[in-house]
Structure formats: C-alpha cells, structure tokens
Design a protein around this nucleic acid. Structure first.
Length: 569
RNA sequence: AGCGGGGUAGGGCAGCCAGGUAGCCCGCGGGGCUCAUAACCCCGAGGUCGGUGGUUCAAAUCCACCCCCCGCUACCA
C-alpha cells in the first residue's frame, strides 16, 4: 500500500464548468482515485476553486460586484455540483481560504530566501479609466498585417499572426474601449533559468511521464527557460509576501498550483491531524498524479516542479501527469460567450450523474481531441450502458427472482463454457488495472463493458430458460456464475459509475458498500447458494427515440428554469 | 511562422513505441433466441489505414516531404 495524492486541475470560477472541464480534470481524477482506493491504496484526493486573476476581477467589475462575492457564490454552487456528480474529493476547497493564503505566502518567501526571486521594472499597458494593467490579450485593435479590426494584443485571430500590443493600430482596452497608456511597473520574477539543468534532468529521467509530456517539455527547455513574473498589479489576489511588494498580488498560477499542497494541509487540519500533510508531501515515495488538460502541461511539468525544488523543502515531485486532449461540442469549441456546449449544472437537469460519467469517460479525449455529439451520447447510453450492461444484469437477476424465488441456486460442476466466462472476468481484473495504471480510462471502461457483452453471449450459449426444464442443474450453475459475475462487474464499474454500482450491490443484497470492496475480489465467486437477492429492477432507462429531435428544445427549457447563483445572471 | 500531438470502413475508436495478410463498438443486410427494458446471440457486406516518395523479403506501424485538424509559443487560466 502506497501513499497517493490525486490532484485535479482547479476549475476557474468565473463561470460554471462545462463538460470538457469535467472530463479533463475532476471526473478523470475521481475515476482514478476510486480505482486506487479499491486497490487498497492510501489516497488523498484534492482540488478546489481557482478564484484569483484578472478575468475574475474584470467579470466582477462588469457586474458591479466585489470579486469575493462572485467567487463565494460560484464556489459553493460548483462544489455542490461536483458532489452531485459523485466526485469523491477528500477536500474540495478554494484559493481564498486562510490556510491557502498563508501557505502561498510562506512558500514564496522560501523561494525568495533561497535566492530564486529577483525584481525587474517593465513597461505595461495600463487602462486609465478602469485603473488596471492590461494583459496583452485584453487589448484589442486593428491587425497591422491583415487589417482585421478585432485583433487581440497577443495574436490576431483572423490571420493567426503573433503580435505585440504595441503593434496594434488604434489599440483599445477590451472592457471600456479607452486608449491604454504605457506605464512602468516593478515586478518580482521567478528565476526559472537557474533551474533549467535540474528540470531537464527531472524530465528526461522521469520514468512515468508520457512521451507527449516529455517531448513538449524538453522542447520548452531547449528553447531556454525565461524568468516568470510572480507578481501582478491586480487588486484581487493574494498579497505578495516579498519586502517592498506590499501593493502587489501573487500571479494566479503561482497561487493555484500550490493549492494542491494547501488543500492537503487543510484536509489534515479538518480531520484533526494537522501535520499529516507533511507525511505525504515531504515523502519522496508519495505518488502525486495530476489530471489536467493539454494546455496545462508546462505549468505542471515545469513550473510546479521548479517551485517545489526552489522551496528547498523536499516536496515530492510530480509522479505522473495525466493530460487529456480537448473535448469539442458538436464539432466546435465549447464557448461561454457563444453559448456552445453543455454546462455541468444543465447536464444534471437532463440526466443523472452516472449517465454523464459513463458517456464522458467513453468519449474521453485520451490521444486526440474527441467530439461530443448528442448522437453519440444517445448511442452510448442506449446500446452500451443500457443494453449491454443494464440488460445483462437484469436478465440474470430477474431469472433468479422468478425461477428460484430470489434465492441463489446451488451450482453443479462448472463446464468449459462456465469456466471460460469466469476466466474472462479474472483476466479482466488485470487487463482493466493495467489500462487504468496507464491512464487509459476510456479503454479500461471498454473492457468492463466487454465483460457484460461476454456475459450476454454466455447466457445465450447456456440458455438456462431451456435447461431449467431439461437439465435444471445446468441452469442453476449458469445462474450461480451469473450472479457472481455481476458482483465482480459491480466492483469493476464502481470507479466509473459509483451510484449505479452501489445500486447493483443493493440488488444483490450484499453487506456493506461497493465502495469499500477490494479490487482483488474481482473474479472471486463467493456468493453462496441460498443467498437471497432483492427484487430486481432495471438499472438504467433508455433515451426515447425522439431524443435527438427534442434535445435542443429540452435544453432551452432547462436553461430558462435553471437556478444559478444570482451573480452569474 | 516555430514546436508538439492527431488524421484508420457511414459514425465512434483500438492497433503504431518493440514492422509480418487491418481489429472493436454502433449502424446496415441476413439468420437464431424468447430469460431480459423491441433487449440478447451468431454470420455477412463495408477500409488502396490523409497524400507522395523512400528503407525493407514485408510498412497503418520506420524515414523524408506535402495537405488538413487541435494545442502551445511564456502577461488568459
């Protein structure tokens, strides 16, 4: 048994997360954390709301609110949604907690004391009307190359050229359209180049990072690391701890990444063992795994390890980075402003959590972007979840219920077909585990569905509905194998669809909870003859044939009626 | 533009790192079954594996170039 910290990227709470955010970080991490627990590992699973930074400050200002008021409400709302999705966090917190703020300030001071922080004056565009310094992309103007009038300060979306804000013709503040002026300001920088060699070694010699993460990072390193500003002139954020930096705040990335540690610390405090977090984070044998989207790789594979090293405290460095590609929605990018996509609160109004968990993992963008379509959603719910899994379970349980009064019959000797099916389940235990270990959650789930498919084929081959008349002992054997395989199936399904797995456990009338079972008990057929099961009822319902025609209309209604925090209206 | 990843039957995906007559699910055509939620099972049709060239006895797999999609390019997070 080993110590694990499972980390899910912190959702930025300027809005309700959409399905892509869910599958990329929080949901994938939950599946993995649940799997580890079944394996008997010692797991702390953390995440939280990332609530600082310019976009939130601006979003709040637009609504005439204090940023804290905005994030207070959105945080509570999102936290509750994740609970409904069955995300089994040890601690889901936020970056505005006292624990986090103090931790970040102390941590950055250690980096400072160790000589990794220096200051530099730079010139930044400043909006005199809004009284904020403007990041490049918050300045718009005409592209000097293609004359596109809405080019951003970092890049023209029309011609794709990379730009400097000073190149824009007629530059304007994206919020109020005033002309930005250039002001000089002092900032505190993290001396990344100082760690270039150490980081190169860390990544090159890393035994677990996937090839794409390695290649990406080594390329970054090859081009040379640049110092990175740790401070911002924003009002909203954690006050920078450095001497002379009293009016600055901490750049949101240096704050959010440390949340993984501070959330563990807070968890320790909550359970009354305030020093427990050290036993995890300061132990080199603790495995930390980060579930993130592909855009986040450099922050987790380079900047975060660099910070951990610079602190000099001996924190355990990332053990694995499980980066997903992107989920698109009906062929387009999710877009809040254009209303493209489904947001996780709306999703729950439409279907229960397990339907989403199942379909999203089934579509998980593991090696390339994948596309969410309602057609595919409909197909996966109806043919995979319902027909393959739900129906297999229901056929076995209702057969036992009707023919044996719900009592598991006494099996005869297992024949070749019985043994072959049992063997498939035993093999699936290792097959699924191996895929999970390699972060191929989608393929792992597919293997689990295969067990149900094989189960259906097994039933057809054995035809207990005939045998119960001609050779009752054989029908009894089939049902004993069937009910035991369903027990294994429940455990295999637990990481993916925990609510339904628990329902199966209850239908089987087994003691305790499926969540507390052991992975190694998969393939162990220990339900004894004479065991009484509960009255079966179908686990899932199918989407109606007109679903695809009606889904947009349904969604419109959901959007009209949904109760979001007032700050988001 | 540079760097990274991807392009495999109508749809969704695996195989590629360790080359050996292309595999899974859905859909489609045919058959079977009737325990089960019109569910289940079996058989079949359907692909010159983005393009071109190369290495090799043999290339989806290795190499080169090209086309298309996605991401990153350090002050969005």
């Amino acid at each position: 048994m080993g110590k694990w910290i499972v980390c899910a990227a912190w959702p930025y709470v300027n809005a309700v997360p959409h399905l892509g955010t869910l599958i990329g970080s929080v949901l994938s991490a939950d599946v993995y954390a649940r799997y580890l627990r079944l394996k008997g590992e010692d797991v702390i699973f953390v995440s939280g709301s990332d609530e600082h930074g310019t976009p939130i400050e601006v979003e709040a200002r637009k609504r005439g609110l204090e940023p804290k008021k905005l994030t207070d409400e959105v945080h509570e709302y999102v936290k509750e949604l994740f609970k409904k999705f069955g995300i089994s966090f040890s601690n889901y917190t936020r970056t505005e907690t006292q624990t986090h703020i103090e931790f970040v300030r102390e941590f950055l001071m250690k980096m400072y004391e160790n000589g990794y922080i220096f200051t530099q004056d730079i010139e930044m565009p400043y909006c005199p009307k809004d009284q904020i310094y403007l990041p490049d992309r918050f300045i718009v103007g005409e592209c000097p190359y293609c004359k596109y009038p809405h080019a951003r300060g970092d890049q023209c979306e029309n011609c794709g050229k990379l730009l400097e804000p000073t190149q824009l013709v007629n530059p304007r503040c994206v919020f109020c359209n005033s002309k930005p002026e250039i002001r000089k300001t002092k900032h505190w920088y993290f001396n990344l180049p100082k760690l270039a060699e150490t980081l190169k070694k860390f990544i090159e010699e890393h035994p677990h990072f996937p090839d794409n993460v390695k290649a990406f990072c080594l390329n970054w390193l090859k081009e040379g690391l640049k110092p990175r500003a740790v401070t911002r002139d924003n009002k909203w954020g954690i006050p920078a701890p450095f001497p002379g930096a009293e009016n600055k705040t901490v750049y949101v990335w240096f704050d959010a990444l440390l949340g993984y540690i501070s959330a563990t610390k807070e968890y320790s405090e909550k359970i009354g063992k305030p020093n427990l977090w050290r036993e995890y984070w300061l132990d080199k044998n603790t495995k930390t795994i980060y579930f993130i989207g592909k855009d986040n790789i450099p922050f987790h594979a380079i900047i975060f390890p660099a910070m951990l090293i610079a602190s000099g405290e001996g924190y355990t460095l990332p053990w694995q980075i499980a980066a997903t590609e992107y989920l698109t929605f009906e062929g387009e990018k999710f877009s809040k402003s254009r209303g493209i996509g489904v947001w996780i609160d709306e999703a729950l109004e439409l279907m229960d959590a397990d339907y989403w968990r199942f379909t999203l993992i089934y579509m998980r963008p593991e090696v390339r972007d994948s596309n969410f379509t309602w057609k595919e959603f409909y197909r996966i719910v109806n043919s995979e979840l319902n027909d393959a899994i739900g129906n297999f379970i229901h056929r076995v349980l209702s057969f036992i219920y009707k023919n044996y009064n719900g009592v598991v019959p006494k099996p005869g000797e297992l024949d070749r077909v019985d043994l072959e099916y049992k063997d498939k389940i035993v093999k699936a235990k290792d097959k699924v585990a191996k895929l999970m270990d390699n972060n191929r959650l989608k393929l792992a789930l597919n293997e689990v569905v295969n067990i149900a498919r094989e189960g259906n084929a097994y039933l057809n081959t054995k035809a207990p509905w005939d045998k119960i008349k001609s050779k009752p002992e054989d029908a009894a054997t089939t049902m004993w194998v069937g009910v035991n395989s369903i027990k294994s199936l429940a455990i295999l399904l637990e990481p993916f669809i925990p609510f339904s797995a628990e329902k199966i456990w209850n239908l089987l009338n087994l003691p305790g909870s499926v969540h507390e079972q052991k992975w190694d008990s998969i393939g162990v057929f220990d339900i004894k003859p004479g065991h009484k099961i509960n009255k079966p009822k179908p686990l899932f319902r199918k989407l109606p044939p007109d679903f695809l025609k009606r889904v947009n209309e349904i969604l419109v209604k959901i959007r009209l009626n949904i109760k979001r925090p007032s700050v988001l209206e």
